[in-house]
Every structure is written in C-alpha cells, then in structure tokens.
C-alpha cells in the first residue's frame, strides 16, 4: 500500500534530480536543481566565459605585429572566436537565472575569476603559437571531458567550443613547427615560449585532486567527469611527443616515460606560484582586469545611446499605431 502511495505522488523534485544524475542524463534549465548545484554551475560557467573574454587580450596583443598577413588574419579570427565563445557561455550561464550584466559586474569587482593562465604576458610571437598549442591544448583536454557534464546547456556549448578550439590548437602547433624549423632566432623564440608556458599550462588544469575543494561534490553531481590530475596526465601524455616532434625540450628534468604506468611521469608543479597568481599577484592580473574595465567604461555612452535610440524607436512605433 505504502509503495503505491509513493507511485501516485511521484518522486520529489530532489529525487528526480538524483535519478537524472544517476542515469547520466542532462539537467535542463527548467528542471529543479539544488541551490548549491545552481551556484556551482554559475561559478564554473561564468569563470569559463570570463576566461574566453580576458583570453582575447594576450593574443590580441600580437594582432598588429603579426609577422605575415596570413598569420594576422588567422589571429584576428581566433580572437574573434574567443569573443564568440564568451557570448555563447554567458548565454548558457543566463539559463541559470543570472544576467550578463551581473556576471560582468562580478568579474570587474574581482568577485568571479578567470583562468590564471591569462595573467602571463605574451612577450614574443612564439607565445601566440605556444598559447594555441599548450593553453588551448590543455583547455581542450578539460573541455572534452566537459561535453559530458551534467548541465545540458553547458555540455552542448562545450561540443561547439571544442570544435573551434581544436582548430586553434592545430594553428598554434603549426606556428611552433614553422618556428622550430626556422632560423636559429626563431627556434630560440619557440623554446623560450615553451619554457615560459609549460608549467602555467599544467597548473591551469586546477589544483591536485587532494587539494581541490570542489572536486568531490562536482564529481557526485556529474559536473566534473574526470579529476584535475587525470586530465593533467592526459594532457602531458599527448603533449610530450608533440614537443619531441618539434625538437623542443620540455623544461622538466623529472620528465620520464613510465613503462609500468604507461604514462609520462612529470615533476612537481609549483603550487605556491599558482596560488599567488590566483590571488591576484601574477604578472598581468592588474593589467588584464584594468583593460577589461576600461573598455567597458569607455563604451558606456555607446550602450546608453543604443538603449535610448531603441526606446525612441519604440515610442515612435507606439505613436504610429495609436
């Protein structure tokens, strides 16, 4: 008797949520979800969106100085894709009941973060190649896993973003290959870029599993489907042979193939340095945020004008129909 009562009432929203997660099905915007799940998703998608937007800056830094017209056009298209990803991800985030303006404010006030990797400077043309190869490579390793994340709009956004990111990564690798096979100065430029971007690229995949505050709950909710350390290992395993192919040295004396594990062993990441950057003391934290805030403030009068003009048009429309 008791069982049939339950059947008539159906599962509670919380039970229904747990069932969807257990079945590996997607949570959609209209589904009930725990408040903490919603907050976690907002934090994660917003951080991802902010990263795309701030990520325009380090590469945008080389648009006017790209060494050929072909490279310049490719770079403009890439930076444009990043703005597009940002827009796409903000839309996904808005399905959770927060507006783009609110998210923008949270970024500007430093209350939401973006990936620490964009707080490093691009000091040579090879950095544009290294970002495509390493940073986009690490991002793809993370995002491929996220195509299976439990929140539907985010998972679908990742499918599209991943397609474009793999194109970016190939472009970055191609820049590195051209430099590695070029003049001595170009090879040095490429090696120097690898030296500077290698460790930050490993660190950007997040703190080690035992230190990651979000990992356990996020795994339970199907937000994360692989741990930071698992993704990092995948990234190292796929990238080391690429560095060897380029004839460049990975700046890690502890790097060694581990036959038993079937993986590359690698050295200890300097997590103190990583947390320093996360806390706002990386080489470019202040510039990146100031650049973003300045663009927003400089554009205030334009946005106001667009709204005022739209309101006037609407007023005219109403007057015409009256």
């Amino acid at each position: 008797m008791e069982q049939s009562t339950v059947t008539a009432a159906g599962p509670t929203p919380a039970e229904r949520f747990d069932q969807l997660i257990a079945a590996g099905e997607k949570i959609e915007p209209r589904d009930w979800m725990p408040e903490a799940y919603r907050r976690t998703m907002i934090r994660q998608i917003a951080q991802h969106a902010h990263s795309e937007v701030i990520g325009q800056q380090p590469e945008g830094n080389w648009i006017t100085r790209a060494p050929s017209l072909r490279r310049k056009a490719i770079l403009v298209a890439k930076v444009q894709d990043e703005a597009g990803h940002g827009l796409y991800l903000y839309s996904a985030c808005e399905t959770l009941g927060i507006s783009r303006d609110e998210l923008n404010d949270l970024l500007h006030q430093g209350r939401q973060k973006y990936s620490s990797i964009f707080n490093y400077p691009t000091l040579s043309w090879a950095d544009v190649g290294a970002i495509g190869w390493l940073v986009d490579g690490a991002a793809i390793a993370n995002q491929v896993a996220l195509t299976r994340t439990s929140y539907g709009p985010y998972a679908r956004a990742m499918v599209r973003v991943c397609k474009e990111e793999s194109f970016h990564q190939r472009q970055g690798f191609e820049i590195m290959m051209t430099l590695a096979r070029g003049s001595e100065a170009q090879r040095e430029m490429a090696q120097d870029a690898l030296n500077r971007w290698w460790w930050p690229s490993l660190a950007m995949l997040g703190p080690p599993d035992e230190q990651s505050t979000h990992t356990e709950q996020s795994m339970q909710w199907g937000i994360k489907v692989e741990t930071n350390d698992e993704i990092r290992q995948k990234f190292v395993d796929q990238t080391v042979p690429q560095a060897q192919f380029l004839g460049l040295a990975v700046p890690d004396p502890a790097l060694a193939w581990n036959e038993e594990r079937g993986h590359w062993d690698f050295g200890e990441i300097d997590w103190d340095a990583f947390w320093e950057v996360v806390r706002g003391n990386g080489p470019c934290n202040r510039e990146r945020l100031a650049h973003k805030v300045k663009a927003w403030e400089d554009g205030a009068w334009v946005r106001e004008a667009a709204l005022a003009h739209a309101a006037k048009q609407e007023g005219r429309g109403l007057a015409a129909t009256a």
Partner: peptide, 8 residues
C-alpha cells in the same frame, strides 16, 4: 579587438 563597448 577586446576594446569595444560590448562583446557583440
């Protein structure tokens, strides 16, 4: 790029 009034 990255200096405009809005992402659009």
């Amino acid at each position: 790029l990255s200096r405009m009034p809005e992402l659009e």
